[in-house]
Design a protein around this nucleic acid. Structure first.
Length: 490
RNA sequence: GAGCCGUUAGCUCAGGCUGGUAGAGCAUCUGCCUUUUAAGCAGAGGGUCGCAGGUUCGAGUCCUGCACGGCUCACCA
């Protein structure tokens, strides 16, 4: 048996049916609101009582009832539409005895109603609709969370996000900002001649990154498929096809644990620009993120948690090896044994890969301490199988990552466009896999064939959108910027 | 996967250390109230205290296991 509150509301719905407003639906859809709460409030903000009285215009709004204050012969209430909240006022001498009784008997907090009436100002100067007509549009059978404290329980907030959105206005703001951010990113690249494209999410080979994929199956083709772990290799095929400036914003899937910074499906943008180098992309990304930040926040200096972030350009650019030398000395770089011993002391699973040990040590010692945006370059060759080798130093690649607030936000490099080199690097990855290394890049012969047709010199980057949204909305967890984060079933 | 914390009414929370059969505010219901806005006043109903065991005469409280969630760590972006 459901609880009393639901029973009561179901009973009201049944009674409405029994009243038998013949031919009238209990869930009507023919009420068309003409006005919006927020617009009404701003347009008539400065009007005096007298001026409002002289307006002959009748307003028509619809929304969810958020609060009710019953005075016997009159009722105050608030409704919420997509733009905001507005107060309504119902009095017996205007609406009549029967209508007032109907409202009292059948309209509950949480229901949707449509109202028509004129504006007036209350004693406390609140613009209010003096209701002449109202209609019950949708009866809610379950009560809303508490009006004052809102909904706090994190689990309920995520599982029933609609309740979170109804009762916690700041949550809605975060998601409005999220939309705005992706729009700004699109605007930025569109203005620079980039073309937005869509590439497959179902991949026969999960390439473009080293991560465990989700597996799925195509019945008609009788084949195993993977949800993409990166769009990279398809986007580069498009560069080969002549799309010299492209980007894709979309969902990517990695079969790994969740945390405050990881969701199994997340959104990133990948972009590719022919005839550019990774250094050009540093400038571009700097410009992009400053543009987005300034438009969203109106400033380049802001707080994220306890951290004060300053995005003023130019951003710092540091070399991984050099930054480690200056912090821990260069002793550990003398030999593999010393390097691996150092990595072991941090509990790093380097699996005997030099580059991996170096990068992981960097992230723990230097990366975590980075606050203001910093480009980190000099990525070792052996952990960058898709990146172009540096012309002067063959141990590293022309690759960088962007760190802000101790986290990685972007990964970019000059693309490897030598098909023979790429083939050898894939073969090395396959050898690593044979040795038991799980997260390696897969061999993709079709991609090699594409490269053999010639890819212009190109640089590409990937930027985590969720993390950017976290940063710009001061959200401590990725779950706060994803409507429905993954949780275990109840 | 490991450690720590949490789970009590529809919602927000007390109670738990020191065991004696569950409380507040909001919401709901009844009555009064025609400018309130966390409306007010008077009254009422509402709980397998996350689940399963154990200890005990007696468990919301103590113990064990499990589930779900949060945080930290590990892996990753």
């Amino acid at each position: 048996m459901e609880n009393e509150l639901i029973e009561q509301r179901k009973k009201k719905l049944q009674q409405l049916k029994d009243i038998g407003l013949s031919g009238v639906s209990l869930f009507p859809n023919d009420f068309k609101p003409i006005h919006e709460a927020d617009k009404v409030l701003t347009s008539y903000k400065g009007f005096s009582e007298e001026e409002l009285k002289n307006l002959s215009k009748e307003l028509s709004l619809a929304g969810r009832v958020m609060a009710l204050r019953d005075f016997g012969k009159s009722i105050f209430f608030h409704i919420k539409d997509r733009t905001g909240d507005i107060q309504g006022y119902i009095r017996r001498d205007i609406i009549g005895d029967e209508n007032l009784k109907f409202f009292k008997d059948y309209v509950d907090i949480g229901d949707f109603i449509g109202i028509k009436g004129n504006l007036f100002k209350t004693k406390t100067d609140e613009l209010t609709i003096n209701v002449k007509e109202f209609r019950l549009l949708t009866k809610a059978l379950r009560p809303l969370p508490e009006k004052w404290h809102g909904l706090k329980d994190v689990e309920t907030r995520y599982r029933q996000r609609y309740l979170d959105l109804i009762s916690n206005p700041e949550v809605k703001e975060i998601f409005f900002k999220r939309t705005k951010i992706t729009k700004l990113i699109r605007q930025f690249f569109d203005e620079r001649g980039f073309v937005e494209v869509e590439t497959p999410i179902l991949h026969p080979i999960a390439g473009g990154a080293a991560a465990r994929p989700f597996k799925t199956y195509h019945n008609a083709l009788d084949m195993e498929l993977f949800l993409r772990i990166a769009p990279e290799l398809y986007l580069k095929r498009l560069v080969i096809g002549g799309f010299e400036r492209i980007y894709e914003i979309g969902r990517t899937f990695r079969n790994e644990g969740t945390s405050t910074q990881h969701n199994p499906e997340f959104t990133m943008i990948e972009l590719y620009q022919a005839y550019a180098t990774y250094e050009d992309l540093m400038d571009l990304i700097e410009e992009l993120i400053c543009f987005v930040t300034e438009t969203i926040l109106g400033t380049l200096e802001f707080k994220y948690g306890d951290m004060q972030i300053n995005m003023t350009r130019p951003w710092k650019r540091i070399n991984i090896i050099e930054s480690l030398r200056s912090v821990v000395g260069d002793e550990f770089l003398e030999s593999d044994e010393k390097l691996f011993r150092k990595a072991d002391s941090f509990g790093i699973s380097h699996k005997g890969i030099r580059g991996k040990a170096i990068v992981e040590i960097f992230e723990r010692i230097v990366g975590l301490e980075i606050v203001d945006p910093t480009f980190v370059f000099g990525f070792p060759f052996d952990v960058s199988p898709l990146a172009r080798r540096n012309d002067l130093n063959h141990a590293i690649t022309d690759r960088f990552e962007l760190f802000i607030a101790g986290r990685e936000f972007a990964n970019a490099f000059s693309e490897l466009n030598d098909p023979i080199d790429q083939n050898e690097r894939f073969i090395k990855q396959v050898e690593l896999k044979a040795k038991g290394e799980e997260e390696v890049h897969e061999m993709d012969e079709d991609y090699i064939t594409a490269l053999e047709h010639g890819m212009p010199p190109t640089a590409g980057a990937g930027i985590g959108i969720d993390r950017l949204v976290m940063l710009l909305t001061n959200s401590p967890s990725i779950r706060e910027v994803i409507f429905f984060p993954h949780l275990r079933p109840e």
